Simulated assay, not measured.
Amino acid sequence: MRYQCLEGQIIHIEEQYLVKCNLKFSNHNIFLKLQNTPIVHGRGFDLLQPNNLKAEQYFQAYVQNQNFESGKVSLEYHPSLFVVNEEEKFFAVTIGQYNEKTNLLADQLLTRIDENTVIRSSTGLLKYKDGIFRNCECAAFYKMCTLSIPPKATPQLWVIL
């Protein structure tokens, strides 16, 4: 599954799971439904609850591509991942299926998992073991990658979606 990244700024928290946002590269205001969506702080990699969100925070919302097939901008999305930060600076994020045989994420990023790697799921922190990423989508957060083909990175955080 491929994802589209929506970027912008939170305008207002409507309800516990509904956030009104302004998109960065357009003058559209949209609503994001965050129920059952992992919310991650873009610098500290902490998992947050919807009540931790504040107006004027910057965000990146990762939405599945099928929501964009019609070519129209919708007013409401349910992102698979929501990343927030107080500044308009985020670490790199790659989302997709992880292949444990090749260590490729989304067939485009060669990754390495070490003892410092944090893996989170909806149930909390996990330790890496073979098969942990089998049959699931995941997001990798990393600060730098090489310029090789494919690029290589050691993600600081993995989130199982």
Results as ranks from 00 to 15, higher is better:
Leu81Glu: 04
Arg112Ser: 13
Leu75Gln: 14
Thr111Arg: 02
Asn52Val: 02
Gln66Glu: 15
Gln35Phe: 10
Gly71Ala: 08
Ala61Leu: 03
Gln35Ala: 14
Leu48Lys: 05
Gly44Pro: 04
Leu110Lys: 15
Phe91Leu: 06
Pro50Thr: 11
Pro50Asp: 10
Arg112Trp: 02
Phe31Ala: 04
Phe45Val: 00
Ala106Met: 09
Thr102Asp: 09
Leu81Phe: 05
Tyr98Ile: 04
Phe82Glu: 04
Ser70Pro: 11
Tyr58Asp: 04
Leu81Pro: 03
Ile39Phe: 10
Asn67Glu: 15
Lys54Arg: 15
Phe82Ser: 08
Leu34Arg: 04
Leu109Ser: 13
Tyr77Ser: 07
Asp114Asn: 15
Asn36Pro: 00
Lys101Asp: 13
Glu115Arg: 08
Lys33Thr: 04
Phe31Ser: 09
Phe90Tyr: 07
Phe82Asn: 00
Lys72Ser: 12
Phe91Tyr: 02
Asn116Trp: 02
Glu86Arg: 05
Tyr62His: 13
Phe59Gly: 09
Leu109Cys: 14
Ala92Gln: 06
Asn116Phe: 03
Ala106Cys: 10
Lys89Pro: 00
Gly44Glu: 01
Val73Cys: 12
Leu48Met: 09
Val63Pro: 11
Asp107Leu: 12
Gly71Cys: 07
Asn99Val: 10
Thr94Trp: 01
Val83Phe: 07
Phe31His: 08
Leu48Ile: 01
Gly71Lys: 13
Glu56Gly: 00
Leu34Ser: 00
Tyr98Phe: 14
Tyr62Thr: 04
Gly71Met: 11
Asp46Glu: 09
Gln108Glu: 15
Phe59Tyr: 13
Glu86Val: 01
Asn36Met: 03
Glu86Tyr: 05
Phe91Val: 05
Lys72Pro: 00
Ala55Leu: 09
Asp107Gly: 10
Phe45Gly: 05
Thr37Glu: 10
Leu32Met: 07
Ile39Ser: 12
Ser74Met: 12
Gly71Ser: 11
Val63Asp: 08
Leu53Val: 01
Ile95Lys: 03
Gly44Cys: 01
Ile39Arg: 07
Pro79Thr: 10
Thr111Phe: 06
Phe90Gln: 06
Val93Ile: 15
Tyr77Asp: 03
Lys89Phe: 03
Phe90Asp: 06
Gly71Thr: 12
